[in-house]
Design a protein around this nucleic acid. Structure first.
Length: 772
DNA sequence: CGTAGTTTTGTTTTT
DNA sequence: CAAAACTACG
C-alpha cells in the first residue's frame, strides 16, 4: 500500500498518530474515534512506508477478540507477511515467553495455569495448614491482596515489610506459602504470568536483549487498563529501541479492581518526557444526542485528561429514560420493544444490546426473551471452561501434562467415585510431604505408605495405572483422541450416563463440546499442537472471545464486557443507585474514587450506542433475596434535562399505563431526587395477581445450565398451520388454545390461551407453535 | 466412605 | 436467592 493510500482514509490527528513511528507515542483515543483503524494503518505504514519487517512488530491487546480483530484487519490491508506480525494478548504473549525460557526460573515447559477456582482451592489448603480461621480471614480477601501485590510487582518479603500490621503479616505469610506451593506444583496463576515474565527479563538480561531485538516496534491497546506489572513488562521490552506506542482513554479505565493503574496513562509523559501525544476526539460512532449526554456524565469526574468528543453525525433521537415498578416490568418493556421493532421490520435482532452492571441481572431478561421467543446470546456469567465437568476433565489433562500439579490430581483422584476418600488422601498427602515428593509420585509408590489397607492400595494403584495409560496415549495420539480417552477410560462419561438426569445429559453435551474445541484447536495450531498449548488456550480464553460476528441475536452482557463493542440500539438497564453505582462503591472508604470508576463504566456503556440509547430502571428490585427500593442512578441525574426524553406513552411499547401525568411527574421527581412523593403517585398497577404469582414462584425457567439459545426464527413466515380453536404447543408455555390470529405485515399475531400461563399474544414466526 | 438434608454465608466487574 | 459448607446418618 502506498503512503497516500494509507493516509487518505484518515483525519489529521489520525494521520499524525500513524506517521509518528519512532519514539514514545501516546494516543488518547476517545470512544468511537477510530483507534483500531489507526493502529492497523500504523502497522501498514511501518511495513510499507518505513520498511519495517513484520516480524519486528508486536501489538498487545487485552482480549483475544481484540487481537483477532486487529489481525484480520491488518491481513486485509497488508498484502504480504501479515502473519509474521505478533498480535497477542498480554497473557498469551507472556506464556509464550515463559514456556520458552521458564526453565531459567525453575519451571518446566508444561507448567499449569491456575484460574481463580484453582487459586481458591490452593488457598483453602494453605488456610488449613496454617490453621487459619476462615471466619476471621477470608481466603478470597487474602487472594485479592496477593493479586494486588503482584499487580504492583511486590513479592512476599517486600509485602511483609510494607504491611507491618498483624493482618498484613498474616497475609505475607500466606502469600509466601502460596508462591512456594505454586512453584512446587509447577504452576502459575494469572498474575504470575506477567510478574514471572518481568522477573525473567530482570534476572536474565540476555533473554531480555533477545526479545528487545526481536520486537522493535511495540503497540499497546487499551493502555488505560494496564497495571504496574504490565507497564513494567512493556517498558522493559521497549527499553532499547523506545518505539512504544500506547493507545488508551483514561475515561474508559474500568479495571481498577484488577489492578489497572490509571497513573500509567495520566503519567505517561512523565515517564517518557519526549513522548508525542495525539488526541483523537472526533467520534464516528454515535449521534450528537448520545454523545453530549455521555460527555456530560463523564465531565463530573475530576483528574482526567482534558478531552471533549465531538461528532459530525446527526442529532438523532434523545436518550430515553424509563422507570418501572420492578425488574420484571423493566425486562418486559425492553424485550417487548425489541420484539416489536423486529416484528415490524424496522430493526434486526443483531442491532440490539442489553447491558447491565452485574451478571445476576441477566436472568430476568433471559426469561423474558425466552417467553417472547426472541433469539439471544448471553456473554459472560459462568465461563464454559469453568463448568464442573469441564474442569474435571481438564484436571485430568493437567495431571497428564504436569504430574507435579497436586491440585489437579486431588481434584480427579476420586472423580468419578473410586472409593478413595479423605482419610486415604490425607495419608498419601502426609507421605508426600514428608518425602518431599509430589502427591502423584506418592500414589505411585503407595505400597510404601504405612496404614493403608489392601483394598485402598489396589484402588490407588488402579488410579496410577489409569493415569500412566493415558499418558502413553498423550504421547502418541491427537489431543482430541486423548480428551475422548480421558472421558471414557476414567469412567467419567459412564458415571454421567448412569445418572440419567437432565442435568447429566446437559453435562455430557458440554463434554462433547470440549472434544470439538480440541478438534478446533488441532486445526488451528496445525503442527504446533500440544497438550500444554491446548490447556493454555482453554485457560486464557474469555467468554467474549467466542462471540460470533454479525449473528442475528440480541446480545446480553455486562457493561464491562461491552467495552470495545458498538450497537445501533443499546439498553442500559438497572440504572439505580445501589446497583449502578453499586452499593459497594457508595459505601467504600474512598467513595469519590470508586464512584468515579463506576461513572467511567457508565460512560463506556453510553458510548456503545450508535443511534438509540435507552436507560431503564426499576423502583424496587430483588437483591440478594430481598426487595430494595431503588432511587434513580445519580449518573442519570447528571444528564441535562434537555438531552433526555422522559415520556413513554407514545413509544412503540404496548404499555397503556399509567394515567396521564403520573409517570412523567414521578420520573421527574425521581431524577431531581424527589422525596418519595412518587411512591404515592400511582405508577402502573398496584396489584396484578399474575405478576405477584410470578414474583414468588420459583423460576420455572429450566436449564440455564447449558448455554441454550432458541434457534433463530425462520425468516419467511407463511400462514400458520393452525387455526383459531386449535390446540398448540409452545416451547415454554406448553399447550394452549388459539384464540385469535391477526395478520401483521407479512407475519401474524397469534393470541393463545395457555392453561398454565394465561393468555399470551405473540408473533407467529417467532413463537414457533406446533399444532397438536 | 458416601449421601442427603440442613445451615450458613455471601454479593460487582474479568485476563 | 443462590451456592457452599457442614452434619448426621446409612
Amino acid at each position: 500500500m502506498l503512503e497516500n493510500e494509507i493516509l487518505s482514509q484518515l483525519n489529521e490527528e489520525q494521520q499524525k498518530a500513524v506517521v509518528t513511528t519512532e519514539g514514545p507515542l501516546l494516543i488518547l483515543a476517545g470512544a468511537g474515534s477510530g483507534k483500531t483503524r489507526v493502529l492497523v494503518h500504523r502497522i501498514a505504514y511501518l511495513i510499507d512506508v518505513i520498511g519495517v519487517s513484520p516480524a519486528q512488530i508486536l501489538a498487545i491487546t487485552f482480549t483475544n477478540k481484540a487481537a483477532d480483530e486487529m489481525r484480520s484487519r491488518v491481513d486485509k490491508i497488508i498484502g504480504f507477511g501479515a502473519s509474521q506480525i505478533r498480535v497477542s494478548t498480554f497473557h498469551s504473549f507472556c506464556v509464550r515467553i515463559l514456556r520458552r525460557y521458564g526453565d531459567l526460573l525453575g519451571y518446566t515447559r508444561s507448567f499449569s495455569i491456575y484460574d481463580t477456582d484453582d487459586q481458591l482451592r490452593l488457598m483453602k489448603k494453605i488456610f488449613k495448614e496454617k490453621q487459619a480461621d476462615p471466619r476471621t480471614m477470608r481466603e478470597k480477601a487474602v487472594l485479592a491482596r496477593i493479586s494486588h501485590a503482584k499487580d504492583e510487582l511486590v513479592p512476599p518479603e517486600k509485602y511483609a515489610v510494607l504491611n507491618p500490621d498483624y493482618y498484613g503479616q498474616k497475609v505475607a505469610e500466606m502469600y509466601k506459602s502460596y508462591q512456594k506451593q505454586l512453584k512446587e506444583n509447577n504452576a502459575m496463576d494469572f498474575d504470575d504470568l506477567i510478574t514471572k515474565a518481568v522477573e525473567l527479563f530482570e534476572q536474565h538480561p540476555d533473554v531480555l536483549a533477545e526479545v528487545q531485538d526481536r520486537y522493535r516496534y511495540l503497540m499497546v491497546d487499551e493502555y488505560q487498563d494496564t497495571n504496574s506489572a504490565q507497564f513494567r513488562f512493556v517498558s522493559l521490552i521497549a527499553g532499547k529501541y523506545r518505539n512504544l506506542c500506547v493507545v488508551g482513554d483514561d475515561d474508559q479505565s474500568i479495571y481498577k479492581f484488577r489492578g489497572a493503574n490509571i497513573r500509567n496513562i495520566l503519567g505517561f509523559e512523565k515517564v517518557f518526557p519526549d513522548a508525542v501525544v495525539v488526541k483523537l476526539e472526533r467520534n464516528y460512532r454515535s449521534t450528537k444526542n448520545i454523545l453530549s449526554a455521555a460527555n456530560e456524565v463523564i465531565s463530573h469526574n475530576h483528574g482526567r485528561k482534558r478531552k471533549k468528543l465531538w461528532t459530525e453525525n446527526p442529532d438523532g433521537v434523545k436518550v430515553r429514560l424509563r422507570r418501572f415498578a420492578n425488574g420484571f416490568e423493566e425486562a418486559e418493556f425492553v424485550c417487548g420493544e425489541i420484539a416489536e421493532e423486529v416484528r415490524c421490520g424496522k430493526r434486526s435482532l443483531g442491532d440490539f444490546a442489553i447491558l447491565y452492571r452485574t451478571n445476576a441481572q441477566s436472568r430476568l431478561f433471559e426469561e423474558k426473551m425466552l417467553m417472547a421467543s426472541l433469539p439471544y446470546r448471553i456473554v459472560g456469567g459462568i465461563n464454559f471452561y469453568a463448568r464442573k465437568e469441564i474442569k474435571d476433565v481438564l484436571a485430568y489433562l493437567k495431571t497428564i501434562d504436569n504430574a507435579e500439579d497436586d491440585l489437579s490430581v486431588l481434584r480427579v483422584i476420586n472423580v468419578p467415585k473410586r472409593g478413595i476418600g479423605d482419610s486415604t488422601i490425607s495419608k498419601v498427602s502426609d507421605y508426600a510431604a514428608s518425602g518431599g515428593i509430589s502427591f502423584f509420585a506418592a500414589v505411585q509408590e503407595a505400597q510404601r505408605i504405612p496404614g493403608l489397607s489392601k483394598g485402598t492400595l489396589s484402588k490407588l494403584s488402579a488410579f496410577a495405572k489409569l493415569m500412566s495409560d493415558l499418558s502413553v496415549q498423550a504421547e502418541q495420539g491427537k489431543i482430541s483422541a486423548l480428551v475422548k480417552a480421558v472421558m471414557k477410560e476414567s469412567g467419567y462419561r459412564d458415571a454421567l450416563e448412569a445418572e440419567e438426569t437432565e442435568e447429566a445429559t446437559a453435562r455430557m453435551e458440554n463434554l462433547d463440546e470440549l472434544v470439538s474445541k480440541a478438534v478446533q484447536y488441532e486445526q488451528k495450531a496445525a503442527g504446533e499442537a500440544s497438550l500444554s498449548g491446548f490447556l493454555e488456550e482453554v485457560s486464557l480464553i474469555a467468554d467474549i472471545d467466542n462471540l460470533p460476528e454479525n449473528e442475528e441475536r440480541v446480545l446480553l452482557m455486562t457493561l464491562h464486557s461491552a467495552k470495545g463493542l458498538e450497537f445501533p440500539v443499546v439498553y442500559m438497564t438497572g440504572m439505580e443507585d445501589g446497583l449502578f453505582p453499586g452499593s459497594m462503591s457508595i459505601n467504600a472508604e474512598n467513595p469519590q474514587e470508586e464512584i468515579e470508576e463506576e461513572r467511567r463504566l457508565c460512560y463506556v456503556g453510553m458510548t456503545r450506542a450508535k443511534e438509540l440509547l435507552t436507560l431503564t430502571c426499576a423502583k424496587e428490585r430483588m437483591l440478594r433475596g430481598e426487595v430494595a427500593a431503588s432511587p434513580v442512578s445519580r449518573f442519570v441525574r447528571e444528564i441535562p434535562r434537555e438531552c433526555i426524553d422522559l415520556e413513554g406513552g407514545t413509544s412503540p411499547g404496548r404499555r397503556p399505563l399509567p394515567a396521564a401525568g403520573g409517570r412523567d411527574r414521578a420520573l421527574r421527581d425521581a431524577i431531581s431526587g424527589g422525596r418519595g412523593e412518587e411512591e404515592t403517585l400511582s405508577f402502573g398497577k398496584q396489584f396484578d395477581p399474575e405478576k405477584d404469582v410470578r414474583y414468588s414462584r420459583k423460576s420455572s425457567y429450566v436449564n440455564p445450565y447449558k448455554k441454550t439459545v432458541p434457534p433463530a426464527a425462520d425468516a419467511a413466515a407463511g400462514a400458520p398451520e393452525y387455526r383459531v380453536g386449535d390446540t398448540v404447543r409452545h416451547v415454554k408455555f406448553g399447550e394452549g388454545t388459539v384464540r385469535e390470529i391477526t395478520p401483521r405485515g407479512n407475519d401474524f399475531f397469534v393470541t393463545v390461551d395457555f392453561t398454565a400461563w394465561g393468555t399470551k399474544k405473540m408473533i407467529a414466526s417467532m413463537a414457533r407453535l406446533q399444532k397438536v
